[in-house]
Design a protein around this nucleic acid. Sequence first.
DNA 1: AAAATAAACGAACGATCGTGCTATTGTCAA
DNA 2: TTGACAATAGCACGATCGTTCGTTTATTTT
Lengths: 209, 209
Amino acid sequence: MSKGVRTRAAILGEALSLMSTDGLSGLTIGLLAERTGLSKSGLFAHFGSKEQLQVAVLQEAQACFTTHVIRPVLDLPRGLPRLEAFAEGWWAWNRSPPFPGGCPIQAASLELDDRPGPLRDEIAGAQRRLRAFIRQGAAMAVAAGHFRPGLDCTLFAFQMVGIAFAQTMTCRLLGEPEGLDFVRRAWRVQVDGALGTSQNQTGEMNHVE
Amino acid sequence: MSKGVRTRAAILGEALSLMSTDGLSGLTIGLLAERTGLSKSGLFAHFGSKEQLQVAVLQEAQACFTTHVIRPVLDLPRGLPRLEAFAEGWWAWNRSPPFPGGCPIQAASLELDDRPGPLRDEIAGAQRRLRAFIRQGAAMAVAAGHFRPGLDCTLFAFQMVGIAFAQTMTCRLLGEPEGLDFVRRAWRVQVDGALGTSQNQTGEMNHVE
DNA sequence: AAAATAAACGAACGATCGTGCTATTGTCAA
DNA sequence: TTGACAATAGCACGATCGTTCGTTTATTTT
């Protein structure tokens, strides 16, 4: 591992921390240089432009999410077990990601949703992949007989994303300590609504369209 | 209405538009002065500091939301009718608010959630009031017999906020035209899960904790 | 209409922004 | 160990940031 690669990785790590608290627009080259102990120009040379730096940071954020949340659950059996573990991992990530601030991907998603360009493409791709992961996870649960046949897995992913955002809102912005309870209960409601009728733990029948 | 007040209102209107696309941190005094046709110093004098301008913009955003979404539904009968109308109004607001960009309140919520100070207090208050409004709306539906007794109205509000964020994500960032369908269906699932059993339109029984 | 007050301007400030250069330092292979 | 090259520093640039100040122009009140 050459020097340049190592430095670049260190820069991206620090950039992620900075971005998690101050957002993509708060990620400034001068500040980042100061925190990494590099000169502005020395740091700049690693990326060529501000935008390329931002793209790299967004990619690093995705890689970090994959490492911390996605990868660990791939060892678990497909279907409900994996999905449940992913949910719990995601809630943990949202509440206390490995940065001082909140999830950079969520923040960037709302920051960039009205500004077309490479940055929005990058974060939109990340969100699409995340939803696809959830959708496939739900589909596996259907295939395994955990979830009822005919479940709309795209809607399932949509709802789960909503819970995640509501969590950030509750836990981070409002700072309510019972936020995680609401997350878990909302998630439980959603899972219960997707279960196969034979496994329906709460005795309710589920809506099939 | 004196001149100063009129100008201030015009500034805030333009500021809201600018903020909806570029975020709170993109709301710069120079740019805002240019768009309103004022000089930087002339504009600045209306607020005294950048932070006070930002606070004023956040308050203006709340007022605008109240006018467009909250106020109209207060004429409707309490309970489910009002709640349904509010939902539809909110989805419409999220998809195409009276600004070029997306909902400034949602954007600011994620932008400020890690930066304590007057700005975060302001937006946190807005979110708390919004949730209280939803919670009370659900409580009225319970009182009116539309929703089942024992419904957790706080959880209900939590879930609804989640749907709204997921909508912004889907409709704005990803630009999926069918986004509104998912919003309505997720909302329908939530409402169905809250209905009194006698009115349950989908034939499912509901989970009561 | 004159006096009093409010509103807006123009110019300047120090700071920081992103981005080019050139020079110097460090690293790695021959 | 030297030579090639990658990595970093230093410096400067035009632009823009938020802010202050004194002045000028509008508006409102007397």
